[in-house]
Design a protein around this nucleic acid. Structure first.
Length: 489
RNA sequence: CGGGACGUAGCGCAGUCCGGUAGCGCACCUGAAUGGGGUUCAGGGGGUCGCGGGUUCGAAUCCCGCCGUCCCGACCA
């Protein structure tokens, strides 16, 4: 760990503060390859829990996992016009194999629509084969110019769902359903509140009919696009000849959807919950929910305290082999490191609850519990400890979401504001600004040029203001929709 | 890809202007004491100074090229 004891103040430089947490909490590291990242065990532990929770949800909604190739023939990408236009500039291309030049270059997948729907076309003949609901966990490559740990790397690990349906409405329902799955995960597991809604044409996925997004607010008041779902219409079905015979006997093109979230979510977690001490991990995602720090002076005390810790762990179940309903506990029995040093280390890593056990506590049949989120410290009786701790953990989970949502609402502007004030806001502290939009892409582009802010989403009904805005933020013409404006990562 | 800063031990840095024995703090190893919020003392290990070329008796230091990192733009999940 580095020499200096405090983190970079986030007010001064949010980026530096973010990097500091990611590196010091050992979530990730730079790789020898430019723009790529190594996810370290403590980061991967969080990701594994995310992955399992998401995968369970995908299964529960009828999806099955499959695996498709890393390489995509260049001609596949070119079959869908908008798709190739969107992705061609950021593809990595393999031109040689076995020491020889390839007849056709292979694209390292930036996303797998093309190769997956080419396969779907083989698998689907009848309406009875639909819906086809597939998910893939894979790494993809997008040759970004500027990279950032977790948030934008050349190669990243994600999940991409791909489905085929018989009707537009069914595909649309699937697109909305998966957006809901994402939202529930981000709020329920990550304690990261999001605003959901539809993307404007300029931010729509290359090749999609409609794109929906979950947008979270980071602590510098910028937006993070945390997950997107796309109704692809029949665009890819037509490009890859994905057809089926309907009940009526007619031959029709299928309707596709795709949706994905990535390890970017870990970055979102850091930027939502990190503080100046380090990371804060919501209990649901914490590989270790409770860390026990034993306190002792003599060998006798050490034996006594560790024995008590052991009993408590037996009561909870060891975290490496957690049974459903048990708690994930770790005893930090390292000798020669003072308790204070251990406190700082585990706080940096974001473990939700710390349990201190010393001779003075055992004399009183108690331990001391410290919450990572509020740093609140209190004694707890040994008799009811398991229930007490389980209750505390679920309260922390709930409180973290509430705190994050309150913070977001404090930095959301719903009152009508002048364009000058808007520019000032985007230039300074930032915000989610709910305001009218005339629906003109040129107006949207001009605002982006002026302020770097974009329409994050045209929000879903529950996020819309009670009084619909009447005029466009910039041009003053009648508003066709309410939009959430913000600068984004 | 354009502008700026930087690359020296695992991490953070000094040394570079003005060429001449590779340094500091933390971390790590050994020993002793210590132990309820970042322990102390003593001893020790660890380096092709980002890579390649050039100038020179001699290069971390000067020159050229390349690679990488960070920040600001353009692009994007």
């Amino acid at each position: 760990m580095a020499d200096d004891k405090k983190l970079t103040p986030r007010a001064e430089d949010f980026s530096a503060w973010y990097n500091e947490i990611v590196l010091r909490a050992e979530l990730a590291d730079y790789s020898p390859v430019r723009g790529c990242m190594v996810i370290r065990p403590s980061g991967y532990g969080i990701w594994e829990r995310m992955q399992r929770a998401l995968d369970d949800q995908f299964k529960a909604t009828g999806h099955r996992n499959a695996y498709f190739p890393l390489f995509i023939p260049q001609s596949f990408l070119e079959k869908e016009a908008a798709h190739v236009e969107g992705f061609a500039p950021e593809t990595a291309v393999v031109t040689h194999g076995g020491g020889k030049k390839l007849d056709e270059p292979l694209i390292v997948r930036p996303t797998s629509e093309t190769i997956i729907y080419a396969m779907f076309a083989k698998w689907v003949q009848s309406y009875r084969d639909l819906p086809l609901l597939i998910n893939q966990w894979a790494n993809v490559v997008r040759w970004e110019m500027r990279t950032r740990l977790f948030l934008r790397t050349l190669e990243f690990l994600w999940q991409e769902g791909h489905t085929a349906h018989a009707t537009h409405d069914e595909a649309e329902a699937e697109t909305r359903k998966m957006l809901g799955v994402y939202r529930d995960f981000m709020e329920g597991w990550m304690a990261m509140p999001v605003v959901t809604g539809r993307k404007t044409d300029s931010e729509r996925f290359a090749g999609a009919l409609r794109t929906y997004s979950c947008e979270a607010m980071m602590q510098d008041n910028k937006a993070l696009q945390a997950g997107t779902t796309h109704n692809l219409g029949q665009n890819f079905a037509k490009a890859f000849d994905l057809k089926f015979q309907a009940e009526s006997g007619s031959i029709e093109y299928a309707w596709n959807t795709s949706w994905g979230v990535s390890t970017r979510l870990i970055g979102g977690l850091v930027m939502t919950h990190g503080d100046d001490i380090g990371l804060r991990v919501p209990p649901q995602l914490a590989p270790v929910e409770i860390v026990i720090v034993p306190i002792y002076k003599t060998d006798e005390e050490r034996a006594r305290v560790l024995e008590a810790a052991d009993r408590i762990v037996q009561g909870f179940g060891a975290w490496e082999h957690r049974e459903p309903g048990r708690l994930r506990v770790h005893v930090d029995a390292r000798d020669g490191i003072k308790p204070g040093a251990k406190y700082f280390e585990w706080e940096m890593r974001g473990v939700p609850v710390r349990m201190e056990i010393g001779p003075r506590d055992l004399d009183k049949d108690q331990v001391v519990l410290v919450r990572r989120d509020t740093r609140e410290k209190r004694p707890a009786s040994l008799n009811t400890l398991a229930e007490d701790v389980a209750e505390l953990l679920s309260r922390i989970q709930a409180d973290m979401l509430i705190a994050a949502r309150e913070r977001r609402e404090q930095h959301s502007i719903r009152e009508p504001i002048t364009y000058d004030r808007f520019r000032e806001l985007m230039d300074g502290e930032g915000a989610f600004v709910y305001a009218g939009w005339c629906g003109d892409a040129e107006c949207e582009a001009q605002i982006k040029a002026d302020t770097k802010a974009t329409i994050r989403v045209l929000p879903d009904e529950e996020f819309r203001s009670a009084d619909a805005p009447k005029s466009c933020l910039r041009c003053g013409r009648p508003a066709s929709a309410e939009a959430v404006w913000a600068k984004a990562y």
